[in-house]
C-alpha cells in the first residue's frame, strides 16, 4: 500500500527494498496504444506520482499523446499527480484510465 510517510527509509539498502515491480492495468485508449491489458513495471519504491508517470512514459512512449488526459489510480484509489511522496509495494496495481466517450 501507498502508506508513504510512515516508513523509515534508512533500512532501504538493498535492491529489492529500493526497487519493486508494480502491475500496470491499461484501460480504454491506453489499452489500444500499448496493445495489452496488463504489464509489469520496475519502479523505484520511494517515489512521487510524477516520477512514476515519467517511468511509465519512458517504457511506453506511445502513451505520451494522451498523458494529459488520463486518471491514474493506485490500488483502486485516485493517484494525485502532485502528491509529494509515495511508497510502492511489489504487486501494487497502477491503473491508467483515459475516458471513453462513445456510447
Amino acid at each position: 500500500m501507498a502508506n508513504g510517510n510512515a516508513r523509515n527509509i534508512e533500512y532501504i539498502t538493498n535492491f529489492s527494498v529500493l526497487f519493486g515491480q508494480v502491475r500496470l492495468l491499461f484501460f480504454a485508449k491506453s489499452r489500444e496504444i500499448v496493445g495489452r491489458k496488463e504489464a509489469e513495471l520496475e519502479v523505484v519504491r520511494l517515489t512521487t506520482p510524477r516520477d512514476v508517470l515519467q517511468t511509465l512514459l519512458q517504457e511506453y512512449p506511445g502513451l505520451g499523446e494522451i498523458s494529459d488526459n488520463i486518471v491514474l489510480s493506485l490500488n483502486e484509489e485516485y493517484l494525485e499527480i502532485d502528491d509529494q511522496q509515495i511508497v510502492l509495494e511489489a504487486g501494487d496495481e497502477l491503473a491508467i484510465i483515459p475516458p471513453i466517450s462513445g456510447g
Binding site: 499523446e65 488526459n69 466517450s101
Partner: peptide, 10 residues
C-alpha cells in the same frame, strides 16, 4: 483538458 481529437475512437 479534452483529449487530442485524433486520439478519440468512436
Amino acid at each position: 483538458k479534452p483529449p487530442p481529437p485524433e486520439t478519440v475512437t468512436n
